[in-house]
Amino acid sequence: MNKIFKNAAEALNDIHDGAIIMLGGFGLCGIPENCIAAMVLKGTKELTCIANNAGIDDFGIGLLLQKRQVKKMISSYVGENAEFERQLLSGELEVELIPQGTLATRCMAAGYGMPAIFTPAGVGTEVAIGKEIRTFNNKEYLLEYAFDADFAFVKAWKGDTEGNLIYKETARNFNPLMAMAGKITIAEVEELVSAGELDANQIHTPGIYVHRIFKGINYEKRIEQRTVRARLPNP
């Protein structure tokens, strides 16, 4: 069994038009930059993308939107992207906006082999329209189904040849959940090491969930909102 691929182009070779793809990341933090770049080059179309955000105009999933490769987005927040808003208002792009916790937990359910979850998020709002409602302990919950994705693209900090993954800080976000949820999960990592080099106690995603892994290159890690505080002058 070899999970190691040379690069993103090789790992993504069999992705077809119309595929349903999960992409990890929150904003531009922890996004699979190499996989997105390879998809742009490959030109695969009619994609359904499940991702918390839609990137910005010239980075992240925004790059796929610019090339009109996306048919449908399933996201919780898409505020930072003018091209996205234009395609949505003009009807070129189909969009399903869902609560962030619902998005995360529908990924989790897929990875845990559960067909559905119940959540109170969206009860009494337009999110609840057409959904089954059940009452537990006098509180209403919506039935939400597990996602069914063909591929998951995730980004980790470190990975090993067995596919075990470790994420860094808040770049973890949706990545471990989507890694568990994809029928085929492709992980790009900043550091790829041999089996045994990672501490097995510290693994976030066990290798069983990861089908392909490669070492990513040229990480840009763009910052969306650079906020800093002033240094106090030295006494």
Partner: peptide, 13 residues
């Protein structure tokens, strides 16, 4: 059209 992010989860719980 920006989306609800985590707000619906937060207010529901």
């Amino acid at each position: 059209v920006k989306g609800m992010g985590g707000a619906m989860d937060l207010v529901a719980s």
